[in-house]
Nucleic acid binder design. Sequence first.
DNA 1: TATTGTTATACTCTATAACTATA
DNA 2: TATAGTTATAGAGTATAACAATA
Lengths: 137, 137
Amino acid sequence: MEAWRLSQMLVTLAERAKADFASTVAPLGLPMHLARALAMLDEPAPMSELAERLECDRSYITSLADQLEERGLAGRVPGTDRRVKLLALTNEGRELRDKIAAAVSAGSMMLTRLDDEQRASLAPLLERLLGDELVVL
Amino acid sequence: MEAWRLSQMLVTLAERAKADFASTVAPLGLPMHLARALAMLDEPAPMSELAERLECDRSYITSLADQLEERGLAGRVPGTDRRVKLLALTNEGRELRDKIAAAVSAGSMMLTRLDDEQRASLAPLLERLLGDELVVL
DNA sequence: TATTGTTATACTCTATAACTATA
DNA sequence: TATAGTTATAGAGTATAACAATA
């Protein structure tokens, strides 16, 4: 069955893509989950929104936020609704986020294994697979 | 940067593909890692070979083998080298493996979101991304 | 009463190190 | 001495449930 074989490859690729990303980011001193969180903080976002975008529990966002704060990469700022806290990158956080983007662009599997044309044909397929949901790291 | 965006999508897809596979397989009573192991046991294989193919430590294979045995899905059989143990599917294991393949073929993201032509163009790109290593679930 | 974030806790997956048996 | 598998243990990542503050 073709779908079965594709699924097998996709799951294998999933493991590999994560390992690839993790090892690209490790030299910058970041575990993968923090790098992902950093990458989606272009603008301050409510913690509950992060939970949605990362598809994880709110309590885990608390833990991520604590770790980002400890490292001086982000801070909690109050929202207008006083129950809400926004997570916002510090200058240091923004710098690191840019370094991550550069490192991944330079060293990831995507660049080393595919040429321009192949990347161009892969993009719309990935978009389709990801569906209409937000495309976030 | 295009590579950066593709990497972001790929990591997101990685999470989703695994969740997709896991939830497809869950109704059959199997956690994902056991389903993966099952899928690569077409023929009896030394435990150390499984460790290579799953890219994990040998000790973890011991744990997987224990779980497969408890469920009556596979058994350890001695190899010619008496240090080696082969892991081999039972009949029950083979049946379940076939059910998994059928369920994934019928219900996975690959089928529901892509048409035949798109799947045909995705396959060679995935192969390229996976490189020359074994393509295994 | 419903929602946001926090705390405390526990579970799953996986690795490391030390060990046994065999080569 | 080196290799295959096992055992005991530990860590990372993440979830669940109960809770406080605010709406």
